[in-house]
């Protein structure tokens, strides 16, 4: 899977993050192959979300390097990483609650289009008489397409906070997809979902992968993880304790002992 250099999407190299004396992540190495669904699992506090925050630039790393598609990502600004093609969703949903579903997704297009103040002012004045500005139309069309893909079209004019929990998670995914990512980081997408919604999510994640988007998945639902992942990395106390195909991880005694406790079958 990860033989040649150019088939690597994301590479973490000796990544370290400390909070005071506590190592949230220590000398963490990981290669994510292009087109894979790569799961990162581990007990609470193992450093999974910290890893996402380092990759998206929401936290600065203390040491180590992150390489995306053979280029180091140095610019600390999260917006630049999004422009480079890395998008994420959040463990605790972070939608713009006062905006409509459609507006939330359209916001995801921000990193893809530059609009000067002058153009924006002109669009304001000409908006009603001349119909929508072309760029608005493009953004709207793109957003509608994504909403359609995720089955949220009917709710497009609803306020984001009025959606059910499962649909809010989907909307976060829609907003992340609107940025046109090549790498998508999903932080516990199944949290709080019922079994039916989780099953649906399974299909959604696979069809996102089929669009050519590499996925890194942090998730506690082991059925979901083992069912769809190509590779699994296991973290414990900020260090990697195992990595391999789901089958290997399920049979790995270190993982079973350290992470799941003894006498638990995966």
């Amino acid at each position: 899977m990860s033989e040649a250099g150019n088939s690597i999407s994301l590479r973490a190299d000796k990544l370290t993050k400390r909070f005071g004396g506590f190592y949230a992540l220590k000398d963490f190495d990981m290669d994510v192959a292009k087109g894979d669904i790569h799961a990162v699992i581990g007990p609470n506090g193992a450093g999974k979300t910290t890893f996402f925050n380092l990759v998206t630039g929401m936290l600065p790393a203390d040491s180590g390097r992150i390489t995306f598609e053979d280029e180091a990502i140095d610019d600390p600004r999260p917006s630049r990483r999004t422009m480079r093609g890395i998008a994420r969703t959040f463990q605790n949903i972070r939608l713009f609650g006062q905006m409509t579903v459609l507006e939330n997704v359209m916001l995801g297009r921000h990193c893809r289009a530059y609009l000067s103040l002058w153009k924006a002012l002109r669009n304001t004045v000409l908006h009603r008489p001349l119909g929508e500005a072309e760029e608005e139309r493009e953004m709207r069309g793109h957003a509608l397409e994504i909403l359609d893909f995720l089955g949220l079209s009917d709710e497009r004019h609803a306020k984001a906070t009025d959606l059910s929990h499962g649909k809010q998670r989907k909307l976060e995914l829609a907003r992340a997809l609107a940025t046109d990512p090549r790498l998508l980081l999903l932080d516990e997408p199944a949290a709080g979902m019922n079994p039916h919604e989780t099953e649906e999510l399974d299909d959604v994640i696979c069809s996102v992968r089929d669009r050519g988007i590499t996925i890194i998945l942090v998730e506690h639902d082991m059925n979901l993880v083992m069912g769809i992942s190509d590779r699994v990395t296991v973290l414990n106390f900020g260090t990697k304790i195992a990595e391999g195909a789901p089958k290997e991880i399920q049979d790995d005694p270190t993982v079973i002992e350290a992470y799941l406790g003894e006498d638990v079958s995966l």
Binding site: T56, P78, T82, F90, R94, F96, M99, L107, H110, C111
Partner: peptide, 12 residues
């Protein structure tokens, strides 16, 4: 609403 999330989505 949330400047951190806005920044992540590419809002300058």
């Amino acid at each position: 609403e949330n400047h951190e999330t806005a920044a992540l989505l590419g809002v300058n």
